[in-house]
Nucleic acid binder design. Structure first.
Ligand SMILES: [Mn+2]
Ligand SMILES: [Mn+2]
Ligand SMILES: [Zn+2]
Ligand SMILES: [Zn+2]
Lengths: 153, 153
DNA sequence: TCATATAATTAGAATAGTTCTAATTCCTTC
DNA sequence: GAAGGAATTAGAACTATTCTAATTATATGA
């Protein structure tokens, strides 16, 4: 059996690439982010992490999330001025914000779409990133009535 | 000569459609929004409005901007958790956020692009709006060096 | 025209999410 | 096993925005 899990390897690698240390707090925050494919706020991450590490502070959760974002291990998403949400899905994707439930869904981007969208930019605009946000309603409420109700995701 | 300008007509119409009154404060806020094709924050609108109406309050500027947004006379834009910006351009457009200057540029959307982007949505997703945000740098700095420096737009 | 009702404005308090500060603890290296 | 730097921590501070409660303006209609 391995002494390091795959996720710990990835974490360690990305962190040391940036000259940063792997700490128990960073590990548990990252683990929590990978455990559920949703879009928690810092407060929600804090709540989840506390069961594994009751002594962690909210400031550290913010610090760890910032660190993971700057290492490219997770992404950050914002809707209007709501609290920042964190996303563990590193594949190129858009976000669908369900206005009725408040939940957020990942929408896979077909390869080439981003480049295609970039072609609308006039001369002189050099986009390093393109973000696409959909807002609306979904019509598969049945699923969420059967699955455990978990609030916003 | 007309007693009402065209902008006042539009304002009055849209407001009364929503059962709201046209007030001096709403008029001056709307006028200020149309005078410059940029993306001011509430504070910036407040500063511009004060020269025409020194007694107006910041709370009223927030109220007026909200009202204009809900009447569809202006739009609201957010970048990360920065202060909300207001946009007088009602044509379908995307936003380019210049990471070097902090300024925001409108990018016209060719007709059909939004519908095309919507086709990536799986069954059951019904998007009422699609927002596209570009981030990156621009290579026409010369213009902003010649034109009066006006801070973020 | 005056009374009444409702809408809008206002100053300032309150709020929420996040960042900062300064002290402490933890590692790594010599 | 010191020393120095990195990370964590509690709590204060901050910023943009919303709320509260009082005041002022406007519309209606007797
Ligand atoms: Mn957003
Ligand atoms: Mn945004
Ligand atoms: Zn996501
Ligand atoms: Zn715009």
């Amino acid at each position: 059996m391995a002494t390091h899990t795959e996720f710990q390897e990835a974490l360690l690698h990305k962190l040391s690439d940036s000259g940063l240390r792997s700490t128990p707090q960073r590990e548990v925050v990252f683990k929590v982010m990978l455990q559920k494919r949703d879009h928690p706020t810092a407060d929600e991450v804090f709540a989840r992490v506390k069961s594994a590490m009751p002594s962690i502070s909210l400031a550290t959760v913010y610090n760890c999330l910032d660190t993971l974002v700057s290492c490219g291990l997770i992404r950050q998403v914002n809707f209007e001025r709501g609290p920042t949400r964190y996303c563990p899905n590193l594949h190129p994707h858009a976000h669908f914000h369900d206005l009725q439930t408040g939940s957020t869904h990942d929408i896979d981007l077909p390869p080439g779409l981003i480049d295609q969208v970039k072609t609308i930019l006039p001369e002189g605009y050099d986009a390093s990133s393109v973000e696409i946000i959909f807002r609306g309603k979904t019509s598969f409420a049945a699923a969420s009535a059967i699955l455990p109700a978990t609030g916003q995701n």
